[in-house]
Design a protein around this nucleic acid. Structure first.
Lengths: 236, 236
DNA sequence: CGGCTGATTGAATCGCCTCAAAGAGCGTGG
DNA sequence: CCACGCTCTTTGAGGCGATTCAATCAGCCG
């Protein structure tokens, strides 16, 4: 958004927060937005930092993590392209934001962003709606963390990935096996599901042994029996 | 808010969403708001219902619960006086909202409430800020659910109650034992912490045996060694 | 080919859950 | 006023699932 006055080259122009904006809001945002690339593993902000920026995620995947005082970590959010990243109105950053894959963002300095928010009601509305959505996601995740078994967690995670992969997932026939690329490592899956890396690995191995999935490569999973997987995930 | 045109008799007038509103917004909200009482255990809305209303909580405590398909339940939110309740812009209710104690609300039909939101930017801003706050709470809770042990969960819960009780908690000296009234049953604590009722009970018994707390009555807990309790909670 | 990182597998432990029974508190009715 | 029944809580025994610790394996880059 930093180069083009009307953000025409923005891949997520219509899917992002900017989607419903009129030109004046877009121009205002464009004025303060700046593109930034992150390499896989690089972190955008550390928990505890002073909160200096918000962003739209253009491509790649980010994770938000928190940790207990003694260092146990959990991912409290995964962000995909077009998602809004950051905490407006907060003075300190509560989460560590890390790139799970190479990523590209449109970064807004926080204060100016808040200013634009103030002056453009549709932007504020969009952000409210998105925030409510994130709250729902987070609460769904709470149910998963608090009440589901490891097998349900892993099965559910694979189904979520499948849903998200959507068109980009390859499948031979309409009801045939689906192959997806996991956007993250085993360790990151564990961190997201509130498990250990070993438990995630064991669950995947069990599912493979049961013929429900295949694991052509470590980051690639073929779902051979999605009905069984759905069953395993405990529906919901 | 339904009786008095400027909500003067509202106990949470300034602490709630309405706190920062000008008269025109207040009048608009007042026009659609209606008081409602709930008895302990009564539910305001069921998960899956069509979403017909939002509210401000005036007094009492509410819980938001979700459940897995096979009936395992978890509280994903606890609401205290002045909190905003409900999901604007959502067509179906995602959570079951139940009174943990007798409660009083100022209920707004959802659609009209959304209309007022649209026309009064400060209200929308307030709601956004509160929603961001709830998102943070929810993520803090995720860390608890995903990474903390039963003893940490229960210790942390007691500390949270203490913090919330604030002035209403009785303590003899500045650093002496604090006595708090739990707003909920053991079962509800378990539901909130992602544990079973037995585990909660056992943890409390252990703390009592260790001299860290006393349990004068089943809903009353005296914190005798808050340093030890803080230690147990794993700080944060 | 060796060294590194990430993933898998194994064995053993521990924490929490499940199932079950006994105990405490409280309102109702005799 | 006490007995009874109801609900909630506590306590106990036992089992299971996830973790911990440790070793092996696979993939990848120098």
């Amino acid at each position: 958004m930093s180069d083009d006055p009307i953000c025409n080259d923005c891949a997520v122009r219509h899917a992002s927060l900017c989607g419903a904006l009129d030109d004046s809001a877009l121009v205002a945002l464009n004025r303060i937005g700046q593109r930034r690339r992150l390499r896989r593993g690089e972190t955008l902000a550390w928990s505890g930092d002073t909160n200096k920026s918000c962003a739209n995620l253009l491509s790649g995947v980010l994770k938000l993590t928190t940790a207990t005082a003694d260092g146990r970590e959990l991912s409290v959010g995964i962000q995909y392209p077009a998602d809004f990243v950051g905490q407006p109105f907060a003075n300190t950053q509560d989460y560590t934001i890390t790139a799970v894959s190479d990523a590209e963002l449109c970064v807004f300095p926080r204060r100016p962003f808040e200013g634009v928010l103030e002056e453009h009601a549709p932007l504020e509305r969009q952000l409210l709606v998105r925030t409510l959505g994130m709250l729902d996601d987070s609460r769904r995740q709470m149910l998963m963390l608090g009440r589901r078994s490891a097998r349900e967690k892993v099965a559910g995670f694979l189904l979520d990935c499948t849903a998200r992969a959507g068109a980009s997932a390859s499948r031979a026939t309409a009801d045939g096996p689906i192959t997806i690329d996991l956007p993250m490592s085993r360790g990151e899956v564990a961190e997201l599901l509130g498990l250990t890396i070993e438990t995630v690995s064991r669950q995947l191995t069990k599912m493979r042994a049961a013929g429900i999935i295949a694991i052509p490569s470590v980051r690639t999973i073929t779902i051979r029996d999605s009905a069984a997987l759905t069953e395993m995930a405990g529906a919901a």
